[in-house]
Protein backbone atom coordinates (compact mmCIF):
# COMPACT_ATOMS: atom_id res chain seq x y z
CA UNK A 1 0.00 0.00 0.00
CA UNK A 2 1.25 3.47 -0.73
CA UNK A 3 -0.06 6.79 0.49
CA UNK A 4 -0.44 9.84 -1.71
CA UNK A 5 -0.84 13.30 -0.29
CA UNK A 6 -1.90 16.01 -2.67
CA UNK A 7 -1.55 19.65 -1.90
CA UNK A 8 -3.75 21.94 -3.99
CA UNK A 9 -3.58 24.78 -1.53
CA UNK A 10 -0.77 26.51 -3.40
CA UNK A 11 -3.38 27.95 -5.71
CA UNK A 12 -5.60 29.13 -2.89
CA UNK A 13 -5.96 32.88 -2.45
CA UNK A 14 -7.38 32.51 0.99
CA UNK A 15 -4.63 33.16 3.53
CA UNK A 16 -6.72 31.60 6.32
CA UNK A 17 -6.25 28.01 5.19
CA UNK A 18 -2.49 28.38 5.63
CA UNK A 19 -2.83 29.66 9.17
CA UNK A 20 -5.51 27.58 10.80
CA UNK A 21 -5.65 27.27 14.57
CA UNK A 22 -5.04 23.96 16.27
CA UNK A 23 -6.04 23.29 19.90
CA UNK A 24 -4.43 20.55 21.95
CA UNK A 25 -7.05 19.65 24.60
CA UNK A 26 -5.80 17.63 27.59
CA UNK A 27 -8.43 14.92 27.53
CA UNK A 28 -9.60 12.09 25.36
CA UNK A 29 -12.67 13.18 23.39
CA UNK A 30 -14.52 10.28 21.81
CA UNK A 31 -15.78 12.18 18.80
CA UNK A 32 -14.60 12.57 15.24
CA UNK A 33 -15.71 15.41 13.02
CA UNK A 34 -16.35 19.10 13.19
CA UNK A 35 -16.58 20.98 16.50
CA UNK A 36 -18.05 24.39 17.31
CA UNK A 37 -14.70 25.77 18.47
CA UNK A 38 -15.28 29.40 17.57
CA UNK A 39 -18.68 29.36 19.27
CA UNK A 40 -18.01 27.43 22.47
CA UNK A 41 -14.26 27.63 23.09
CA UNK A 42 -12.60 30.70 21.58
CA UNK A 43 -14.79 33.32 23.31
CA UNK A 44 -13.33 32.17 26.64
CA UNK A 45 -9.66 32.10 25.69
CA UNK A 46 -8.03 34.84 27.77
CA UNK A 47 -4.50 36.13 27.56
CA UNK A 48 -3.19 37.24 30.97
CA UNK A 49 -0.45 39.18 29.23
CA UNK A 50 3.05 37.60 29.03
CA UNK A 51 1.67 34.77 26.88
CA UNK A 52 -0.13 32.85 29.64
CA UNK A 53 -3.53 31.73 28.39
CA UNK A 54 -6.60 30.43 30.21
CA UNK A 55 -9.74 28.76 28.91
CA UNK A 56 -12.33 26.25 29.99
CA UNK A 57 -13.48 22.91 28.59
CA UNK A 58 -16.40 20.91 29.98
CA UNK A 59 -16.16 22.85 33.23
CA UNK A 60 -12.43 22.18 33.61
CA UNK A 61 -10.02 25.09 33.97
CA UNK A 62 -7.27 25.05 31.32
CA UNK A 63 -3.87 26.76 31.30
CA UNK A 64 -2.28 27.19 27.93
CA UNK A 65 0.50 28.56 25.81
CA UNK A 66 1.15 28.89 22.09
CA UNK A 67 3.72 26.34 20.93
CA UNK A 68 5.26 27.21 17.55
CA UNK A 69 6.14 24.22 15.40
CA UNK A 70 9.88 23.72 14.86
CA UNK A 71 11.59 25.78 12.20
CA UNK A 72 10.91 24.44 8.74
CA UNK A 73 7.84 22.45 9.76
CA UNK A 74 4.14 22.95 9.16
CA UNK A 75 1.20 21.11 10.61
CA UNK A 76 -1.28 19.82 8.06
CA UNK A 77 -4.80 18.57 8.25
CA UNK A 78 -5.51 15.88 5.66
CA UNK A 79 -8.85 14.69 4.39
CA UNK A 80 -9.66 11.50 2.54
CA UNK A 81 -12.67 11.39 0.27
CA UNK A 82 -13.08 7.61 0.24
CA UNK A 83 -11.32 5.07 2.32
CA UNK A 84 -10.56 2.08 0.10
CA UNK A 85 -12.21 -1.16 1.19
CA UNK A 86 -9.14 -3.28 0.66
CA UNK A 87 -6.21 -2.78 2.96
CA UNK A 88 -3.71 -3.16 0.14
CA UNK A 89 -4.96 -0.44 -2.16
CA UNK A 90 -3.41 2.97 -2.33
CA UNK A 91 -4.82 5.79 -0.28
CA UNK A 92 -5.18 9.36 -1.38
CA UNK A 93 -5.30 12.36 0.92
CA UNK A 94 -5.74 16.06 0.32
CA UNK A 95 -4.27 18.84 2.42
CA UNK A 96 -7.28 20.69 3.82
CA UNK A 97 -5.45 23.30 5.87
CA UNK A 98 -2.12 24.12 7.44
CA UNK A 99 -1.02 25.53 10.77
CA UNK A 100 2.20 27.04 12.11
CA UNK A 101 1.60 26.70 15.81
CA UNK A 102 -0.52 24.86 18.34
CA UNK A 103 -2.45 26.22 21.29
CA UNK A 104 -1.31 23.75 23.90
CA UNK A 105 -3.55 23.32 26.97
CA UNK A 106 -3.04 21.63 30.33
CA UNK A 107 -5.79 20.90 32.82
CA UNK A 108 -5.31 23.18 35.85
CA UNK A 109 -1.51 23.18 35.49
CA UNK A 110 0.76 25.77 33.89
CA UNK A 111 2.44 24.40 30.74
CA UNK A 112 6.16 23.77 31.19
CA UNK A 113 9.18 22.31 29.41
CA UNK A 114 8.49 19.01 31.17
CA UNK A 115 5.19 18.39 29.41
CA UNK A 116 5.35 15.32 27.19
CA UNK A 117 4.10 17.18 24.17
CA UNK A 118 6.78 19.87 24.36
CA UNK A 119 9.48 17.25 25.05
CA UNK A 120 8.29 15.16 22.11
CA UNK A 121 9.19 18.01 19.75
CA UNK A 122 12.82 17.69 20.90
CA UNK A 123 13.01 14.53 18.84
CA UNK A 124 12.98 16.59 15.66
CA UNK A 125 16.34 18.21 16.49
CA UNK A 126 17.82 14.96 17.74
CA UNK A 127 16.63 13.04 14.68
CA UNK A 128 18.25 15.64 12.50
CA UNK A 129 21.54 15.27 14.37
CA UNK A 130 21.45 11.47 14.11
CA UNK A 131 19.98 10.95 10.66
CA UNK A 132 20.55 14.28 8.94
CA UNK A 133 22.90 14.32 5.96
CA UNK A 134 26.42 15.57 6.25
CA UNK A 135 25.58 18.46 4.00
CA UNK A 136 22.99 19.70 6.43
CA UNK A 137 25.43 19.55 9.27
CA UNK A 138 28.07 21.62 7.54
CA UNK A 139 25.43 24.10 6.57
CA UNK A 140 24.43 24.46 10.15
CA UNK A 141 27.97 24.98 11.24
CA UNK A 142 28.37 27.75 8.72
CA UNK A 143 25.33 29.49 10.12
Amino acid sequence: MSIHVENNLKDSNCKDVFEQKAQYIPCKIEADGTANVSQYFEPYVNDNGNGELTATFRGHALDGVIVPLPEGYRGAMLTEAHRPLSEDSDRKFHVASLFKDIMYWNWDKKPSKNDNFVKALEWIDIADAIHGTEENETNEECL
Binding site: C27, K28, I29, E30, A35, F57, R58, G59
Partner: peptide, 29 residues
Protein backbone atom coordinates in the same frame (compact mmCIF):
# COMPACT_ATOMS: atom_id res chain seq x y z
CA UNK B 1 -18.08 18.17 21.94
CA UNK B 2 -18.33 21.11 24.34
CA UNK B 3 -21.33 19.97 26.33
CA UNK B 4 -23.05 23.16 27.40
CA UNK B 5 -22.75 26.93 27.23
CA UNK B 6 -21.11 28.41 30.34
CA UNK B 7 -24.46 29.30 31.91
CA UNK B 8 -24.49 25.68 33.10
CA UNK B 9 -22.65 24.34 36.15
CA UNK B 10 -20.95 21.31 34.61
CA UNK B 11 -20.16 19.89 38.05
CA UNK B 12 -23.85 19.40 38.96
CA UNK B 13 -24.96 15.78 38.69
CA UNK B 14 -28.00 16.82 36.60
CA UNK B 15 -25.63 18.17 33.94
CA UNK B 16 -23.06 15.38 34.33
CA UNK B 17 -25.65 12.64 33.83
CA UNK B 18 -27.17 14.28 30.78
CA UNK B 19 -23.73 14.72 29.15
CA UNK B 20 -22.95 11.06 29.79
CA UNK B 21 -26.01 10.20 27.74
CA UNK B 22 -25.98 12.81 25.02
CA UNK B 23 -22.47 14.15 24.43
CA UNK B 24 -19.15 12.66 23.35
CA UNK B 25 -17.35 10.93 26.18
CA UNK B 26 -14.46 12.98 27.56
CA UNK B 27 -11.82 11.46 29.82
CA UNK B 28 -9.41 13.67 31.72
CA UNK B 29 -6.21 12.46 33.31
Amino acid sequence: VFGYPLLVRFSWSTAELMLQQKAAKCTFE
